[in-house]
């Protein structure tokens, strides 16, 4: 039975994840205040992705799911990346890249 294979995650793990999320939130707010310019938006996206990763892996139990689930999520994320990426070949280069 795989129905109870991941009930060994304790309150402690969840609390630790929550603490990390809080720290990362503080970090992203502070980084935005310091005005890193272009690198600032990169940093905020990276921090957001770290937070999203924590939520997905622990709160949503993705870490304990089978490989199929991870593969499917990967397919969805790739689709999202392709959609936005290919559009930028248009909007990024239109009228000589205005």
């Amino acid at each position: 039975m795989n129905i109870n294979n991941n009930n060994n995650i304790g309150y402690k793990t969840y609390l630790a994840v929550w603490c990390c999320l809080m720290i990362l939130t503080a970090a992203t707010v502070m980084a935005a205040g310091m005005g890193f310019g272009r690198y600032g938006s990169l940093a905020s996206v990276l921090i957001a992705s770290a937070k999203a990763g924590l939520i997905l892996l622990f709160f949503m139990h993705l870490k304990y799911e089978t490989f199929v689930f991870k593969l499917m999520l990967l397919a969805a994320i790739l689709t999202m990346a392709v959609i936005i990426g290919l559009t930028f070949f248009d909007v990024g280069f239109r009228d000589g890249g205005r």
């Binding site: 992203t28 707010v29 980084a31 935005a32 205040g33 310091m34 005005g35 890193f36 310019g37 600032g40 938006s41 905020s44 996206v45 921090i47 957001a48 937070k51 999203a52 939520i55 997905l56 709160f59």
Partner: peptide, 16 residues
């Protein structure tokens, strides 16, 4: 829904 907010927060409130 939380994950989506995690992205909405920096892209609207934290543009530096």
């Amino acid at each position: 829904v939380d994950v989506i907010w995690v992205y909405l927060f920096p892209v609207f409130y934290l543009i530096s």
